[in-house]
Design a protein around this nucleic acid. Structure first.
Length: 235
DNA sequence: AATTGTTTCAACCGCCGAACA
DNA sequence: CTGTTCGGCGGTTGAAACAAT
């Protein structure tokens, strides 16, 4: 019944990795590839839990990793992606080639969150101008959300003639799209789900702004993606 | 040079969904 | 179908490095 246990987790080394342990791990992955973490503690000279091995490889030893020296472009991108995605570090890291989720999380916690507290990132605090498509009696309607209002924790949100109160309850209009994001049973409004759908919907219409060429993504395309209007959907 | 305070970031922890026997 | 583990994730910790006194 069930899987075999991965390791006994008893008597395994913890803490800072030695150069020898790094060498064994790199050697193992070169031969066996990633993903066989369970077998790693069995390797001679590597008495470390497989989970720790995975973390060491992904966050430190991987050959394509970039550490430190976050460029201003990356800095700006992290802020914008964080505004869109929240603390979903792996998603953010996926858009920054060579950067790890742990690295970006650390960077945010030590630099950006501090900056935000000091109120010095106001230049990034512009409207994204999100558009939500809503089906209503077979006609397509656009709802223009003000992202600043959307992200504010208090007050009601205006969406044309629709309103969403601070509890996330839609109190005027009806529509499939908002139904999708407003869990009426629990009255919880999911910004994340809404942003995900916005991203998907815009990607379909405008192409993937994150489609990169193995290196740095094009910030201009992100600006276009985030700020462009699609006149074809407006009545 | 010694001590104390601050910052950085690698590593750990616990949770969750997927996979598996 | 059920119970268990794996792999992945975000939050947090704490040792090491650095700065200030």
């Amino acid at each position: 019944m069930g899987r075999k246990p991965c390791c006994t987790k008893q008597g395994l080394n913890r803490g800072t990795w030695s150069a020898q342990e790094d060498k064994v791990l790199i050697n193992y992955i070169q031969i066996h590839g990633q993903g066989k973490w369970r077998d790693l503690p069995l390797k001679p000279g590597l008495n470390i839990c497989g989970k720790s091995c995975r973390l060491r490889w992904l966050n430190y030893l991987r050959p394509d990793i970039k550490r430190g020296n976050i460029s201003s472009e990356e800095d700006e991108l992290i802020i914008r992606l964080h505004k869109l995605l929240g603390n979903r570090w792996s998603l953010i890291a996926g858009r920054l080639p060579g950067r790890t989720d742990n690295g970006i999380k650390n960077y945010w916690n030590t630099n950006l969150s501090k900056r935000k507290k000091l109120g010095t990132d106001h230049k990034m605090d512009h409207n994204v101008g999100a558009l939500v498509q809503e089906e209503d009696n077979n006609s397509t309607q656009l709802i223009d959300f003000d992202i600043k209002e959307l992200l504010s924790s208090s007050g009601s949100l205006q969406a044309n003639d629709h309103q969403i109160n601070e509890n996330g309850d839609r109190i005027v209009a009806d529509g499939d799209h908002l139904h999708h994001h407003c869990c009426l049973e629990c009255s919880k409004f999911s910004y994340e789900a809404m942003f995900e759908d916005l991203m998907d919907e815009r990607t379909t219409r405008l192409g993937d702004p994150f489609e990169n060429n193995d290196h740095m993504m094009d910030l201009n395309s992100v600006d276009y993606f985030l700020n462009s209007e699609d006149e074809s959907l407006i009545d």
